[in-house]
């Protein structure tokens, strides 16, 4: 391995200096990119879910073309991988994983959480998914089938969870507040 004696923090300092010197990336560009990336957060995905629960046309768009639905919510998607949406329905629950690395719908959920990138999550999701869900406090009924989605290539996948009972008459803002990051990956389900 090259530069095996260098600490990665020092390598970053070296990279930063060289990329600036070569006009590839300067400090202002990097700061701007960090700010733009930090701005993406699970609240955006939650707003999409809540709108899908309250707007039939939007729901159809979201299931047909997640990228267009995200754009309709003002989320920048240009140049990003296409977004696919997996609909949970009675009797079928989706769980997203990337067993090869950490592909994650960052445009609508932000940075992937630590657990999503962990070896234990990646190993278990495709082999002991029901037990894995229990680690997140999620106990699915035996008659609910699990469909694991191993995100291996060019799409990024988010789950459209089922709208929980007890939310009749709620508006989209109130609904969005109950949708968590894990609900849109399938490790948890929204509840009230």
């Amino acid at each position: 391995m090259i530069l095996g004696d260098l600490d990665e923090r020092d390598m970053l300092k070296g990279l930063r200096a060289l990329l600036a010197e070569q006009g590839i990336a300067n400090a202002a560009e990097i700061a701007e990119r960090i700010a733009a990336t930090d701005a993406a957060n699970p609240g955006q995905g939650a707003a999409m879910v809540a709108r899908a629960w309250t707007d039939r046309e939007f729901r159809a768009l979201m299931l047909a073309d997640g990228t267009k639905a995200a754009e309709a919510m003002g989320i920048p998607m240009r140049g990003l991988p296409p977004l696919g949406v997996l609909e949970n329905v009675p009797g079928l629950h989706h769980l997203v994983v990337c067993t090869l690395c950490s592909c994650y719908p960052r445009a609508v959920l932000g940075y992937p959480p630590f657990w999503y990138k962990s070896a234990a999550y990646r190993a278990k999701a495709v082999r002991t998914p029901r037990a894995l869900l229990r680690e997140f406090g999620t106990e699915l009924a035996r008659d609910v089938a699990i469909r694991v989605v191993d995100s291996t290539a060019d799409y990024r996948w988010m789950v459209l969870p089922e709208r929980p009972a007890g939310t009749d008459g709620w508006d989209a803002a109130r609904l969005a507040a109950i949708v968590r990051e894990g609900d849109m990956i399938g490790v948890t389900v929204p509840s009230v």
Binding site: A120, Y121, R122, A123
Partner: peptide, 13 residues
């Protein structure tokens, strides 16, 4: 890493 035995016993953090 899908299904790899050595990580199946490790708790997810």
């Amino acid at each position: 890493l899908g299904g790899v035995p050595r990580f199946l016993c490790e708790a997810v953090d």
